[in-house]
Amino acid sequence: GGHPVTTQMVETVQNLAPNLHPEQIRYSLENTGSVEETVERYLRGDEFSFPP
């Protein structure tokens, strides 16, 4: 991942996926670069990993 992630982006995802840890959200956003894509992954039931 190398996309810039803002606190705003993390908070937006958190509102839609409250049971995800912020670190999981941030890591996913760094890989996708997209709030929409991260939320899609969540709704699909994809696994969210923590940063290594």
Rank of each mutant, 00 (worst) to 15 (best):
E11M: 14
P4Y: 15
E23R: 08
R26T: 06
A17V: 09
V35W: 08
P52Y: 09
S34E: 03
D46T: 07
V5Q: 03
I25F: 00
I25A: 01
R44P: 00
T7A: 15
H21F: 07
F50Q: 03
V5P: 06
P4W: 15
A17P: 00
T6I: 06
D46N: 08
D46P: 01
N15S: 15
N15Y: 13
E40M: 15
T12C: 12
N19R: 11
L16M: 11
P22S: 09
E37P: 00
V13C: 06
H21E: 07
L29W: 02
S34A: 04
N31C: 14
T38D: 02
L43M: 12
V10H: 03
S28H: 06
G2W: 13
G2S: 13
E47C: 13
P52H: 08
Q8L: 14
Y27P: 00
G1P: 12
Q14R: 13
R44F: 04
D46M: 11
T6M: 07
L43E: 06
V35Y: 03
N19C: 14
R44K: 08
E40I: 14
E47Q: 13
M9I: 03
E37K: 12
Q24E: 04
T12E: 14
T38P: 00
F48R: 00
S28Q: 05
V10A: 04
V10G: 01
R44Q: 07
Y27E: 04
F50S: 04
P4V: 15
Y27T: 04
A17D: 02
G1N: 12
R41C: 06
V35I: 13
N31I: 15
V13H: 01
Q14F: 08
H3E: 09
Y42W: 11
F50W: 15
P22C: 08
L20M: 06
A17G: 02
Y42L: 05
Q24H: 02
V10K: 03
Y27L: 09
V13M: 04
L43D: 04
Y27G: 02
V35D: 01
R41G: 06
L16H: 09
P51Q: 04
L16C: 10
V10S: 02
N31W: 13
L29Q: 02
E30N: 07
M9A: 06
Y27C: 05
V39D: 01
L20A: 02
E30R: 07
Q8C: 11
P51Y: 09
V39R: 03
G1F: 13
G45R: 02
G2H: 13
T7M: 14
R26I: 10
S34C: 05
T32G: 07
G45H: 04
I25W: 00
D46A: 09
H3M: 10
F50L: 06
L29I: 06
P18D: 04
T38K: 00
G2V: 14
E47K: 12
E23N: 09
V5G: 02
M9W: 07
F48N: 01
N15I: 14
F48W: 01
Q14C: 10
Y27I: 05
R44L: 07
P22E: 11
P22D: 06
Q24A: 05
L29F: 01
P18F: 07
N19I: 07
P51L: 04
R26E: 05
T7L: 15
P22A: 09
Q24K: 04
E37I: 13
V39H: 05
T12V: 12
Q8G: 10
E47L: 12
V39K: 03
P51N: 05
Y27S: 03
T6K: 04
R26S: 06
L43A: 07
R41P: 02
P4M: 14
S34G: 04
T38M: 02
T7V: 13
N31V: 14
S34K: 04
H3D: 08
E37V: 12
L20I: 03
